[in-house]
Simulated assay, not measured.
Amino acid sequence: MPTIVCPECSTTNRVPEDRLADDPKCGRCGARLFQGKPVILTASNFDRHASAELPLLVDFWAEWCGPCKMMAPQFEAAARSLEPHVRLGKLDTEAEQQIAGRYGIRSIPTMILFKAGREVGRTSGAMTASQITAWVRSQSRD
């Protein structure tokens, strides 16, 4: 039964694997656990989301980055196709420099796929929604 962090209140929820597609709600605040869009990641919620059992794909980006801005709608579209099996999140490297430094982010956009707190894949450069989805699925094979 994977742990899923609420995108609204950051409470950890357990949802049976066969119920992930049933639009589960947070046991604490009642928010939908999957909202069809990336979660905004900050210093206060990053580690909780990254350590959850549900895989997390993080887009490390910055407001000044042209390729990041071009990829943003593609990343959101990928969230709609990858949920509820993968959580997508965005981390602003300018606002959260300590986290970006922890993962050695040198170029953006960079995406890192986490599973249970462990980095399992990394890629840099803008991608389309279908490329993002294909890359995540290729990294998720056990």
Rank of each mutant, 00 (worst) to 15 (best):
F114T: 12
L113N: 03
L88H: 01
I132D: 08
F75K: 03
Y103H: 08
R137F: 06
P109R: 07
V136Q: 04
T3W: 00
P2E: 07
D47V: 03
Q98L: 06
P24V: 10
A43I: 03
G117H: 10
Q98S: 15
L56A: 01
L88W: 00
R87I: 15
K90M: 15
S130F: 06
A95Q: 10
L82R: 01
T11Y: 05
E63Y: 09
R137I: 05
R14S: 12
R32Y: 13
F34D: 10
W64D: 15
E63W: 04
L56R: 02
A43E: 13
L33D: 03
P67F: 15
D18R: 04
P24T: 13
M71D: 09
A100R: 02
R28T: 15
G36I: 10
R102K: 14
T3F: 00
C6L: 10
I132C: 09
A79I: 02
R141T: 15
V5M: 08
F34L: 14
L57N: 00
R106D: 04
L33E: 03
P73Y: 08
N45I: 00
A31T: 13
F34K: 11
V15G: 08
M1S: 11
M71N: 12
A77L: 07
A52Y: 03
A21G: 01
G30P: 10
D47Q: 15
R28G: 14
V86W: 00
R19P: 02
A62Y: 06
S140N: 07
N13E: 05
T12N: 07
M1K: 03
L91F: 02
R14Y: 09
T123P: 06
V5N: 06
P67L: 15
D92C: 09
S124M: 08
D92K: 02
V86Q: 01
W64V: 14
S44P: 00
A100T: 03
C65M: 09
L57E: 04
S44F: 04
P16K: 05
T11A: 13
M111R: 00
P55A: 10
C26V: 09
S124P: 05
P38K: 07
R80A: 15
P67K: 14
I108C: 11
R32M: 15
G101P: 06
Q74Y: 03
D22M: 07
S140H: 01
V58D: 04
A50K: 07
G104W: 11
W135A: 11
T123K: 06
D23Q: 14
T93P: 04
E119I: 13
C29M: 14
R19S: 12
P7R: 05
K115L: 13
S51K: 13
P24C: 12
F46I: 05
T133D: 12
A72E: 11
A126V: 14
A21C: 03
